[in-house]
Amino acid sequence: MSAPLELVCPAGTPAALRSAVKAGAHTVYCGFADETNARNFPGLNFSRAEMEEAIAFAHGRGAKVFVAVNTFPRAGAERLWRAAVSDAQALGADAVILADLGLLDHTARAHPDLRIHLSVQAAAANADAIEVYAREFGVKRVVLPRVLTVQEIAAINRDTKVETEVFVFGGLCVMAEGRCSLSSYATGQSPNMNGVCSPASHVEYRQEGDALVARLGGFLIHRSPADAPAPYPTLCKGRFSAGGVEGHLFEDPVSLDAANLIPLLADAGVRALKIEGRQRSRAYTEAVVRSFRRAVDAHARGLPIEAAGLAALSEGQETTAGAYRKTWR
């Protein structure tokens, strides 16, 4: 019996946070309701009062709360991001999840007691980058970008003492996170600056003949026949043509499910598993968290992992192990 992998679960609302904790999350991550976090969606996230209550609830049940302040502060307006860090500490957050060099630098100096995790948005994809963040800012854990194979993750863990956290379920960025401007190219709104990707405000659906056509910022992303599911028009999951080839040139409309890889990830030295989806429903969060808690507990007891049962939660989409398997490239 080994210590279970830490399960880090999303919460877009106080209700989702309570559900995640009750379903067995070791840790919940969330953000304030503004542009300081990378899931800045309408109706989502926490006010200061809600955060305080949520942290008290989680701590009362032995769970931790990480606060994501992981967009890149706007020039001339860095105060907003610094206030988010300062408030997170004051409200009792167990760690802040940061991406921006300037904010990391400020936090390390102004809040030396606050535990800092490096957001996936910083795209630290090798041990050298991770060591720089550890040396300069005392970063204790890094969330690895979804461009690495299991072998590469193992190599990173051999070369650094900084804890690593990896995504195991949910949305799948095919680009190095925090280094992608596709959304702002099409819509003017970007993950780095605004905390949104392919925002709903710029999505337009239209019936054209037998097909439902979805556009983002005026660009056609999907054309779905009447009898087929119409996936959300996330730019990198669209169908396009290039060099006479038509198809999902960047990525199929798949989502990540690495439940089967939990033993390999553990052997690779990973400390924590992260579930994507602060924008998802409470029911979704609860079901995914419950299933993954069973899986990490089973693994800790040396039992096989029963990974079935989550397919229905992937919005009817296919799932993939993504970059963790080398063939993805």
Partner: peptide
């Protein structure tokens, strides 16, 4: 890539390319 800073000798001058995220004054200052 920020990884380059691991090998940069202290005090050595360098340039930062457009693929490093410099979104604000504090990052530039660092």
């Amino acid at each position: 890539d920020i990884a380059a800073l691991r090998y940069m000798e202290a005090g050595r001058a360098f340039s930062v390319g457009p693929l490093v995220n410099v979104y604000n004054e504090s990052t530039l200052d660092f």
